[in-house]
Design a protein around this nucleic acid. Sequence first.
DNA 1: GCTTGATTAATACGTCCGTTTTATACGACT
DNA 2: AGTCGTATAAAACGGACGTATTAATCAAGC
Lengths: 208, 208
Amino acid sequence: MPQDLPRDSAQRILHVAEALFAQHGYAGVSLRKITAEAKVNLAAVNYHFYDKESLYREILTGRLREINRQRLALLALAEARTGDGPVPLVAIADALARPLFLPASGTGNAGTRLLGRILSERQAFIDELIRVEFQPAMTRFGQAFRRHAPGLPPSDFLWRLSFVIGALHHAVVTLPDMPAHTQGLCRADDCAGALRNFIDFTVKALAT
Amino acid sequence: MPQDLPRDSAQRILHVAEALFAQHGYAGVSLRKITAEAKVNLAAVNYHFYDKESLYREILTGRLREINRQRLALLALAEARTGDGPVPLVAIADALARPLFLPASGTGNAGTRLLGRILSERQAFIDELIRVEFQPAMTRFGQAFRRHAPGLPPSDFLWRLSFVIGALHHAVVTLPDMPAHTQGLCRADDCAGALRNFIDFTVKALAT
DNA sequence: GCTTGATTAATACGTCCGTTTTATACGACT
DNA sequence: AGTCGTATAAAACGGACGTATTAATCAAGC
């Protein structure tokens, strides 16, 4: 499966490595596979990114930062439209999921799979990275959701939030496999349908 | 963290390997780490289980088969109690999640984390194993859920089912980290609370 | 008591890993 | 033209990996 690679070799490495990490995990990908597929010299990773861990971190931070930036921007937009009252659940769920299902044009959605992979892999050296990149967005979305369930005990609310996040990540990760799992009834390229269903699902699950 | 190991060395390998695979994934665990922690000789894995892949498969099949056996048993019990009508959503969700959150006494719940890990790791050589072990249970549960949403388009229903499964797996995998994520508001040992919340969540999300 | 089959132990093999080192090519500037 | 910082290339390093081989141990059965 040949793909149009960027001219710059550092960019080629980032591009190829992201796809491979998303598919096989950190430990499952060797620098030799990356450099071979990116058609660069073996030492190029160490030259441009210092070492394998740094390359991984760079890819991750880039993706996570962009995704959460978009999420917060969409949420802020919805809040501005709403005024002082609680933002509608539909808008919150949309802001949370849209950057995953419908990534900004040009970035491609293959990289999105990384997110789900990472959270279940829990490499020790990226724990802090995940905390730093996710914490701000998650507290903001938590607050927004919370206004729709003010009476719920805190732990119960946090459990429901965790379920919603889990549903989202699982959907993103398994999206490419959905046609096989559903005998073709769910298509992998129907991101809009996936987003719509996630929003419906979340609204029903979190509505009081 | 010393743990009481079984006498038999093959059992010790299974016990230790399951915990390590659950924590670091297949590629992230070496036979040397397993055999060292299990206090057996390096060659013991190859002697008792032929090779690393076979050891992995054996652990997985054991866990998955038992979990899905319990799930189907609970579902059958609920169906018997219900008669001809649709099984209440509460009972279906309970049958689906209980074997994960409250594993049969003696088995310990550390091994349960494997499940969530596996589904996001997607090693090629266990794809068929997963299909074989999960297919029967999933179609049965799908049918049971389906009776509560007969009017929904098939693809929409399958998406919701996927979200429920994702929420469940994510909860299981991140259960040990919940206290840290929630500043202690959700406890890792409160499996009963997690189960109760999952059932509530699923009922709300799938009710028509 | 010796033999036999099953287990454990010790060690070696070949491969692949991440990384380092050394050498070569290229472009811009004086 | 010549120099210098940057990028690519080629090769090698030590170490960890999964696995294979061989030797030691040990518990029955005769």
